[in-house]
């Protein structure tokens, strides 16, 4: 276990120093984050016109959902997306062989090897939003702690779904658009799940667990999530993580490397 932490530190140190060659990117990503945030606040603001409350949410409550979304979006840009792209490239070039031969778990390598600091501005914006909403809603430290755990579980779901999609490259070879598709699907998590029609709610809970990525963790932060939802979050999160591991091992059986 300690070896894995040490490896992780090395991975990320190397990745970050490589990315530091492009420092103007910091300016661009900061502007992108600010503009995205302004646009999202504007759009949600439109929903709050004429005394309307989408899904019965108050303004700060809706901000907790947006905050969790922004946080996960940052996680996606920093960690999940770069590694998914790398996986696609390895399969396409046949260089996945080298990864499989290394003395660390291949899924760990393929999920953690790359780290791009450019999603951190979104992580910061998400934390800022959550801090503001938490102050407005007077969330207790204990609530913040349990909410934090729920957000991590939501992140695990996002990771597992994305990793399973990326694993499909073993059969389909070229799937560069996974990142765009995943970002588009997570987009649904910008708005509270209760603000959708019933069909959407079922779809985003049972088929594509977007509700468990943003709305449920946000409700946990506010201390409004029932025990059933929290249990559901834990089960979906653990189940999807296990499924992503099993699917990865299954897919590797079909991987015909560059040399064979």
């Amino acid at each position: 276990m300690r070896r894995y932490f040490k490896t992780l530190g090395l991975f990320w140190a190397v990745s970050v120093s490589a990315e530091m060659a492009y420092r103007t990117n910091f300016l661009i990503t900061s502007l992108t984050t600010l503009l995205t945030l302004a646009g999202a606040l504007f759009t949600i603001g439109l929903l709050f016109q004429n005394g309307h409350t989408p899904g019965g949410y108050s303004w700060p409550a809706a901000l907790t959902v947006l905050g969790v979304y922004t946080l996960l979006d940052g996680l996606q840009q920093s960690l999940l997306a770069p590694n998914r792209t790398a996986l696609t490239e390895h399969v396409r070039d046949g260089t996945l062989d080298f990864v499989l031969l290394k003395p660390v778990d291949a899924q760990f390598w393929m999920s953690m090897r790359r780290f791009s600091p450019w999603g951190l501005t979104d992580v910061a914006a998400g934390l800022g939003l959550l801090g503001y909403a938490g102050w407005r809603l007077e969330i207790s430290p204990l609530g913040a702690l349990s909410g934090g755990v729920a957000v991590v579980l939501g992140g695990v779901i996002l990771y597992a779904v994305g990793f399973m999609l990326a694993t499909l490259t073993v059969w389909f070879v070229k799937l560069y658009n996974i990142t765009i598709a995943m970002a588009a699907l997570l987009e649904a998590g910008r708005y509270p799940i209760q603000a959708y029609p019933a069909v959407y709610r079922t779809f985003f809970t049972a088929v594509l667990p977007v509700a468990f990525m943003t709305s449920v963790p946000a409700a946990a932060l506010r201390g409004e999530a029932g025990a059933g939802w929290l249990l559901g979050l834990a089960v979906v999160s653990g189940g999807l993580f296990a499924a992503s591991c099993a699917f990865w091992r299954f897919a590797l059986r079909f991987y015909t490397s560059a040399s064979s």
Partner: peptide, 15 residues
Amino acid sequence: TYRAEILLWAIATCL
């Protein structure tokens, strides 16, 4: 040649 990717493209446009 890469039909699966087109499907992902379509998903990406469902905003």
